[in-house]
């Protein structure tokens, strides 16, 4: 479904991604783990069009998407839920969700999706008239996830959804992501919390200083000595 082939990305003069290749098949849930600064967020930003590769190609459903602007990529239903929640603080919860559906014309389906979001996160329905900035960190993360769901994603990419959340909320967020996957959305999960990411997913890539250092089944990576030493702290 999504395929990156030999993608090079520069951040100014920094060679942030060094000829990386990865692929995600329809219906998969894939993790991308790595340390701070390894290039995880850069990878997502490149897929979603916020950054453009210097060389290499990215295809989605066999169509080239590298070089397209973010708003065109969202229209291909490739959706990026950014790091740090990034909700619109002075807009209401409901308006945030409406913004998620900005590219959609199908009013009835959009309303149906909003109902699904509210079913999954009842707290958002309760607070739908409050400004997003007044929500707690965990609620804002749920809103960010809900907002991405409103874009009707076929591929949904999460950047550090567990960042800065209390353990109990991390679990809620993980459950929500699993639920989305169960409902048929293909998922690419970027996490520093390697244990969470590897236990949730079937397959994973390990990114180290802009290179794919390892890839494989998540359950194998959980047992891999290098992964254990570097990312699981044991």
């Amino acid at each position: 479904m999504l395929k990156l082939s030999n993608v090079d990305v520069f951040y100014g003069k920094v060679h942030a991604l060094k000829s990386i290749s990865l692929h995600i098949d329809e219906g998969e849930m894939v993790a991308l783990i790595g340390a701070n600064g390894a290039g995880k967020s850069t990878t997502l930003k490149t897929i979603s069009g916020m950054l453009h590769p210097f060389s290499g190609e990215i295809t989605f459903c066999r169509k080239r998407i590298d070089g397209l602007s973010p708003e065109k990529i969202v229209r291909q239903q490739v959706v990026h839920c950014p790091e740090g929640r990034r909700v619109f603080p002075e807009m209401t919860v409901k308006e945030n969700l409406e913004m998620g559906a900005f590219t959609r014309k199908d009013k009835a389906d959009t309303l149906k999706d909003m109902k699904i979001v509210f079913d999954l996160f009842p707290i958002l329905e309760e607070r739908n008239k409050l400004p997003a900035g007044s929500l707690s960190g965990g609620e804002q993360q749920m809103l960010a996830i809900g907002r991405s769901m409103m874009s009707s994603p076929r591929l949904l990419m999460f950047d550090e959804p567990s960042l800065g959340l209390a353990p109990i909320l991390v679990e809620r967020v993980a459950d929500a992501i699993k639920e989305l996957h169960k409902r048929g959305t293909t998922i690419l999960l970027v996490e520093q919390n390697a244990e969470m990411a590897l236990t949730m997913t079937n397959r994973a890539y390990v990114l180290e200083t802009g290179n794919i250092a390892l890839e494989g089944q998540s359950k194998d990576l959980l047992k891999n000595e290098h992964v254990r030493m570097a990312y699981l702290g044991s």
Binding site: R86, F88, M99
Partner: peptide, 21 residues
Amino acid sequence: GKAIRATFQDREAAALMGINT
């Protein structure tokens, strides 16, 4: 109008919503 406000509050996030900033 809402897209303008969204862009005002977070330009990058607005672009990720499919808003042409």
